[in-house]
Design a protein around this nucleic acid. Structure first.
Lengths: 250, 250
DNA sequence: TAAGTTGTTCTCAGATTGAGTTATTCTCAG
DNA sequence: CTGAGAATAACTCAATCTGAGAACAACTTA
């Protein structure tokens, strides 16, 4: 049966309910480590477990707006700083047994943000924190959120390769070294400083110079660094590929 | 409000209904051109317009299973040939005004198939065809299906770059020239035969030799070609990048 | 059998990458 | 105030990859 014909004869009250929610895998970099926004569930099921921030889609909002609203509620963010957060759809999780009570189809989103203030637990959660992704144990996570987080992390790693979104983890003006630190943190291994510098400046539209430099040198010495802002490219050509994984053995 | 707390207090009968459907952007290559599976809507709204095959998710099936079922219904495909079709989730479209009657959240999928038989219009549709994507006019398409198709085509183009999924448009055994034709058709421009050949054979796990060759040379001459099958790589390292787009002007 | 087409392999120049080096500018400790 | 250590940014050089073209043998059809 075809979608629209089904709907022509459809009476929602006759049909098993489906709930549509949005969840957000929100990533930021704090103290040189990749962090993830999590809340601790107050009520069963999975009371006391960590879960992604998320909630029901409201009748008048689209999916992206719902995700941004959830993010705002949990981070206390608003206005310009909220608008600067990169938000994209990640994937939709809709297996019949995701939630023991009711069928829940969850549209997961992925967010990249510069270092943000500590989150505020709202009334529905015991707690809300930025947790280092290295501290995650999937047994502590509610529902299939461990799987969603894995997908989000892999998507983040791969987005850094071919889009300029690494800049979204930084303030509007940044140095090449700060940008390199984003790649190293998300990818989890060090990069050659000189080659990274050359590559970033050679990809058209990745960054553009502001003409200014930092006020001071690095904390432990070194010259003042030039400042850049994000360029106008939507995609990086050619891409900044991560070093081949070991699986490339053969 | 948080997802699970909402649900704890949730009674579906109190809430505006949301319908969850799956739609499929099914692509195949016929006569050297990229084709898309479309049905013609029999009933309003958009009666007479072309639409993606799709339908309601059933209570006991997950999203991917629903998409595969819809594809099977519309193509008459089953068993091994259906299993060989590549199917992945594309994106979810859920704006509040997508459908004039009811809020419909549609989880779109993307399918790659080898040349398939003509589809069979089921009872809900006037017609079902493989339409060349070059023949599409978005004014003839129902709902936001034009947008979904655009997203699917762009995803297909980009998937060919870094995954071995081009082979999914072909039979299990194929020649390098047939594989090149897939890239040329999906990307829409010719590739250098010699360089393509070198690249495909040098990427680990993309294809593996069967040892056999075609029975005959090409239709208009030329030697017999060696036959290959898909290798075991899930990703291509290094990727097969399409030639830089013209936007790389600056 | 001749003419034309195609699959496959080479060649070669130019671009890109990985790895290391250097000059310079800064901070911090003493 | 000075010297040690650190970081930015530029450069070098070899290895690899890419784009473009050519060569050649194995096929086809006319």
């Amino acid at each position: 049966m075809n979608e629209q014909d089904f709907l022509a004869a459809y009476d929602p009250r006759d049909y098993p309910a489906v709930a549509v929610t949005v969840d957000v895998v929100a990533l930021t970099i704090r103290d040189g480590a990749l962090h993830l926004l999590l809340i601790r569930r107050a009520a069963p099921p999975y009371a006391g477990h960590w879960a992604l921030p998320g909630g029901f889609v409201r009748p008048d909002e689209d999916l992206a707006a719902g995700a941004r609203r959830e993010l705002a509620e949990e981070t206390g963010l608003g206005g310009e700083r909220l608008r600067r957060v990169h938000l994209e759809q990640l994937a939709t999780y809709g297996g019949p047994d995701r939630d023991p009570r009711l069928r829940v189809v969850s549209v997961a989103h992925l967010a990249f943000a510069p270092d943000l203030p500590d989150p505020v637990a709202d009334t529905d959660a015991d707690d809300a924190i930025w947790l280092p992704v290295t501290a995650l144990t999937s047994r502590q996570l509610a529902f299939d959120h461990g799987r969603i987080i894995d997908d989000g992390l892999e998507r983040a790693r791969s987005k850094l390769e071919y889009t300029p979104l690494a800049t979204r983890f930084l303030e509007p003006e940044f140095t090449i070294t700060e940008l390199r630190a984003v790649f190293e943190t998300v990818w989890g291994h060090p990069l050659h400083a000189g080659n990274f510098h050359r590559k970033v400046l050679s990809v058209p539209g990745f960054v553009e110079s502001t003409g200014a430099s930092t006020e001071r040198g690095g904390a432990r010495g070194g010259p003042r660094a030039k400042l850049y802002r994000a360029g106008d490219a939507r995609l990086l050509h050619p891409a900044l590929l991560r070093p081949a994984r070991e699986e490339t053995v053969r």
